[in-house]
Structures are given as C-alpha cells and as structure tokens.
Design a binder for these strands. Structure first.
Lengths: 189, 189
DNA sequence: ATAATCAACTAACAACTGTTAGTTTGGGAT
DNA sequence: ATCCCAAACTAACAGTTGTTAGTTGATTAT
C-alpha cells in the first residue's frame, strides 16, 4: 500500500469532519479524537488548524485550474470542451468528496490564502465563460443567456460532492457521460 | 412601512452574517455589534442562537413544501410543472438570499429540528422525482437518467442564492424564464 | 402621577477554543 | 547497550463562547 504520512492522515480525517459540520464547528479535539490521539499531538505534524484547511482547498483549486488550462488550449469543439470540463469535475470530486465540501463551503476561512483562492476561482469561471462565448460565435451551441448557462452548469458540477457518495455504484466515466447528456441536451424530448 | 419587530430584525441581521461566515463562525457578539447593541440584549427578543437558525431555515423549508404541494396537484404538463418549480425557487430565493444560504449550508446545526427539516427535504425531492418519472411515462420529457436530471436541476436551483445577488438588474420573472429554457433545452444548438 | 412594559445595559459564569511547553515512550540504527 | 527520533503524552495558557441575573432609563397605558 502507499505509505501515507501522518500529516496526510490528519488532513483526510479533518476533511471528513469538515464536510459533516463545517470548518468552524470542528475543533482540534474533534480531529484528534477521530484519530484516537490527543489534540496537542496533532501539532507534531501540522502547524495550525488554518494550515489543514489550506492544504485541503488549495491543492484542489490548483488541480481545477491546471485541468482547465489543458482544456482551453486543446483543439476540439465546444461540446467536447464542455464534456471535458464535466469529466474534470467528476474525476476530481470522485476521489475527494470530503475536500470538495471544504472548497465549496469553507474557503472564506482561508485568511492569508483567501485572495489567492478567489483569483483561481474567478480565472476558472472566466475560462469557462470564454469557451461558451466562443461556442456561440462558432454556432456550436445555442445563443441564449451565457451567464445562465454558465451558472447552471457550474452549480451542478460544484454540487457533485453531495451526490457522488450517495451513488457509489456509478463509475466516474458513466456519470460523466450521463451528466454531459443532460447538461448539453436538457430534459426536453 | 411594515412594522418589523425587533426579533425579525435580529433574524435578518443574523442571516446576513450566517451567509458570509456560516452559523458556527458567527457569535452572538457579532450579531449584537451589527445591530449596535450588546450580546446580552439579544436575549430580550430571542431565546437562543439555535432558535435564530431554526426560524430562518424552517419557515423557508415549509414554503418550499407548500409550493410543491400546489404544483404536484395542478393539472398541467410536465414541462409546465418543471417551470413552476423553477419559478418557486427563484421567487423564494430572490426575496431571501441570506436565509437560503443557511438552509443550504447550516441545516446540520439545527439539532432538535434537524430531523424535521430532513423529512421536508426528502419529501420535496420525492415529489420532484415523481413529476419527472410521470413525464417520462407520458413521453413529455426525454427518457434518460432520472436521478441525473433531478440532481442537475436541483443543484442549480439550490445554488441560486449565490448568483441572484450578483445580477441585481435581472427580475425574478426574467430569470425564471431563461433558467427554465436552459434547464429544459440544454445548451445544444 | 403612577404603574407597567420594553429594550437596552453591566457583570459575571462555566465551558470550550487553538495552541505552547516540556516530558515520556518505543522502535531502529549505530 | 546506547543514541536518536518520531509521535505520543500531561498540564496549562489566555482568549472566546453562549447564556443568565439583576439593573436602569425611556416610553406607553391607566
């Protein structure tokens, strides 16, 4: 098996608790108890509660940014790019549903790294918006309200962390495909 | 003007702070300071911090449940029912974006009323699922994965509280219509 | 004028918070 | 055997938490 460091175990345990109750409601004693040790012992491995949150969120945010860079520079149709964005979200979320809860709900408690996170996030949204605008110009997607399309798709993808754990039998690949179908074609007959 | 009670002012102020930082990170002293009084003075009007959260969330949850009852018993097409659900969300959210943040993110801190909230929520989801299943049977909507359609639409509607404040110039009616268009027809040409 | 009510106040509480300092334990390398 | 070191421990801290008790001043009703 992979030799997981103690610090990584702490972060994983914390992420799970953060998903259940939110960052502020989880105490260092909660995290320690979940690991079977005392709160003070955590500080042999991490420097602060803040740092745990930062490690959870920033690595995920950077993974999304990096994934988007590849998608936007690829030579593919708009529909294919949207499908790639869906796949990116499903795959990252499927392998870290706990962390995604913090990314969505606890980023405001990042303090020093908060502005950095927000810049990654708005860059990501801008890139996605550009993909949709380009698709309209090229007449590859429908010419309706871009902001509404952007909002609708991103909201769905950002909520994946809540649904994936409830459908464990579905593989990421299957989910990506049915999700793309619904987002691209809607529910109309 | 409407004669707003002091208790209602407290709830409104608290909801605003809860949206920014989450229930657990907001202290009674934060709420009091935002109102220009001391924390202990709040207790002349409310009985506990818990009660504030309960008042915010339960009234909203019951409004959704009540709205859904009317939609499901109406004699209209599946598409019309989905449009009605969209409208229900847009209208409730538009007039209380702060409260909707608590409903989405802080319901786990409800304690005594938590189970009641969860029962309202799962009843609501069941009703919506039934509408979609009926639509497939009647061949009014596409026969793809119901759970994915349900998840996609509900995720978008539940995230409205984050987007409506950023587009103040859009009326609820206009938003409902463009949202319905995108959710029903997708983005494909 | 007097009484009652509302809504603020000060002071204090016991419990809990993140974190630090210093110490102990047990296994692996020398 | 001895040393080293990772990783646990106990004890304690200063600050913050929700909440209670009792008081005061202003407005309203009698």
């Amino acid at each position: 098996m992979k030799p997981e460091t103690r610090k990584e175990e702490i972060i994983k345990t914390a992420a799970k608790l953060f998903k259940e109750k939110g960052y502020s409601a989880v105490t260092m004693r909660d995290i320690a108890t979940a690991m079977g040790i005392k709160a003070a012992s955590l500080y042999n491995h991490i420097s602060s509660k803040q740092e745990i949150l930062k490690d959870i969120i920033i690595s995920l945010a950077e993974a999304f940014t990096q994934g988007m860079q590849q998608i936007k520079t690829a030579e593919s149709s708009t529909i294919q790019k949207v499908e790639a964005v869906v796949k990116l979200h499903v795959e990252i979320t499927a392998q870290n549903t706990y962390g995604m809860a913090s990314l969505n709900n606890d980023w405001m408690h990042l303090e020093e790294k908060r502005d950095y996170y927000l810049s990654l996030r708005s860059g990501y949204e801008s890139d996605f918006r550009s993909i949709l605008l380009e698709g309209i110009k090229r007449k590859e997607i429908t010419n309706s309200n871009v902001e509404v399309m952007l909002f609708s798709i991103l909201s769905t993808l950002r909520s994946l962390y809540l649904w994936i754990p409830k459908k464990e039998d579905v593989t990421p690949d299957t989910l990506s495909k049915s999700l793309s179908t619904v987002l691209i074609n809607g529910i109309n007959k």
